[in-house]
């Protein structure tokens, strides 16, 4: 009865959980800047949440160091369905300048299905907002797929 309403709301209120998997903090700062008055992602309903249990979009930054690998996998498992994974910056995609290091276990694709990937070191805030908006659309579609499955 309310399923249509829920479907519509899905894309309007994506909550973000941010995992730093060994990032240099550049992408993390840019992600925060997305929520500042200049870019104001909150007008699209985005909100940073503190726990993976309430997250819809998991944003991963950093090259997945061996220290963070297990923690990342656990955290991703704790996000309820439907969920979308966004890789932020070049590091989770390719390892970037850290590629080949003994302590890097990337890329992110090895551990989870990545729905949206933003390149750049660091990506521009505009690109991040666009990626998040795309992720929100994917979220709504995943929800529909789950219902039709």
């Amino acid at each position: 009865m309310f399923q249509k309403m829920i479907d519509k709301s899905m894309a309007k209120s994506p909550w973000i959980f941010h995992v730093n998997a060994g990032s240099c903090n550049g992408c993390d700062i840019e992600l925060v800047s997305v929520l500042t008055p200049r870019y104001d992602a909150e007008r699209l309903g985005f909100r940073l949440t503190g726990t993976p249990r309430q997250a819809d979009i998991v944003v991963v930054s950093g090259p997945i160091t061996s220290q963070t690998r297990d923690r990342l996998v656990r955290t991703l498992a704790q996000v309820p369905e439907p969920k979308v994974v966004v890789s932020l910056g070049s590091c989770p995609r390719s390892g970037n300048v850290f590629k080949g290091s003994y302590c890097v276990d990337g890329p992110l694709e090895k551990y989870t299905h990545v729905d949206v990937s933003v390149g750049g070191c660091t990506p521009k805030p505009e690109a991040i907002v666009a990626a998040l908006a795309k992720a929100a659309e994917i979220l709504a579609e995943k929800r529909k797929e789950m219902r039709q499955a």
Partner: peptide, 30 residues
């Protein structure tokens, strides 16, 4: 009235074995 069989529902673990990290308490990934 609002519930839907196909939509995601309550999920829980049956066993007490700590196998699935999905059902562990969130502890910053530890």
């Amino acid at each position: 009235l609002g519930s839907d069989d196909k939509a995601p529902a309550i999920s829980e673990t049956n066993t007490d074995t700590p196998a699935d990290p999905k059902y562990e308490s969130f502890f910053s990934g530890e």
